[in-house]
């Protein structure tokens, strides 16, 4: 479980997050929604230790993260698939996956086999450089690389960005299935609120660094104001 309590982050004089508090439960998907500049990416980057907070706390299963380095946070089983996917274009699919296992105790061969079963297209492309993959395949590789180390928390930053609607649908289904089968705590950032709310159990809506609503995905989706002003979802 992730517990975020009174979290504030600034970039110089600009406040990116202010007193953000919410919880994300194990085996459930929590969607973090909001317009551009709401602070969604900053939130994930702060959880991963890429951005320093100046107030508040982030705990995962009672372990405080705010004083830890990004590498140590990753080694605690918190996997972050960044915006733009972050696959290393110069590496092959296999090299990208192998890199995902090196900081964990996972057996490389077994881990890779499991990911190839989840994403069969990666098996076909295993010797290809990531630069030659399509957008959807890159997203699968980024997901596989995050999952291969058997994380307990999965932070996904705009996984549908640049993907065709059908591919997005498939991706969301995979995330949903993985969340329940692996009992993952998933934080899902999406601008595409409609597809995120379809699979999310809970949702948090950010506006200019503040939480303006949180609750079950259904509640958020049925709130007229949320839909109209923040989610861009038409009935």
């Amino acid at each position: 479980m992730i517990k975020i309590d009174q979290l504030s982050v600034s970039y110089g004089a600009v406040k990116a997050l202010e007193n953000v508090s919410f919880e994300a439960a194990k085996g459930r998907i929590t969607a973090v929604l909001g317009a551009n500049g709401a602070g969604k990416t900053t939130l994930l980057r702060t959880i991963s230790g890429l951005v320093a907070s100046h107030h508040g706390s982030i705990t995962v299963d009672e372990i405080q993260l705010t004083d830890k380095s990004t590498e140590n946070i990753a080694r605690l089983g918190i996997a972050h698939v960044p915006e733009g996917r972050g696959v290393i274009a110069e590496f092959t699919v296999e090299e990208n996956l192998k890199l995902g296992t090196l900081a964990s105790k996972v057996n490389i061969g077994e881990g890779m086999e499991k990911q190839f079963e989840l994403f069969p297209v990666l098996r076909e492309r295993r010797k290809q450089h990531a630069s030659t993959l399509s957008g959807g395949e890159r997203q699968m590789l980024a997901m596989a690389r995050a999952l291969i180390a058997k994380p307990s928390v999965l932070l996904l930053d705009e996984p549908s960005l640049g993907l065709a609607p059908l591919v997005t649908q498939e991706m969301m289904k995979t995330i949903s299935a993985l969340c329940s089968s692996e009992q993952l705590t998933v934080l899902l950032i999406e601008q595409n609120a409609k597809s995120a709310l379809k699979i999310a159990h809970e949702a948090v809506v950010l506006h200019l660094g503040h939480v303006i609503a949180s609750g079950s995905a259904q509640q958020i989706q049925s709130d007229d104001n949320m839909r109209r002003y923040y989610l861009g979802v038409q009935r």
Partner: peptide
Amino acid sequence: TNIGLQMRAAALAPEVSKLLGVRV
């Protein structure tokens, strides 16, 4: 080698490498 792979990764994509637990 694994250490070579990590060194190349750290050079090409330090932030992503950190997110994967690589001690850049």
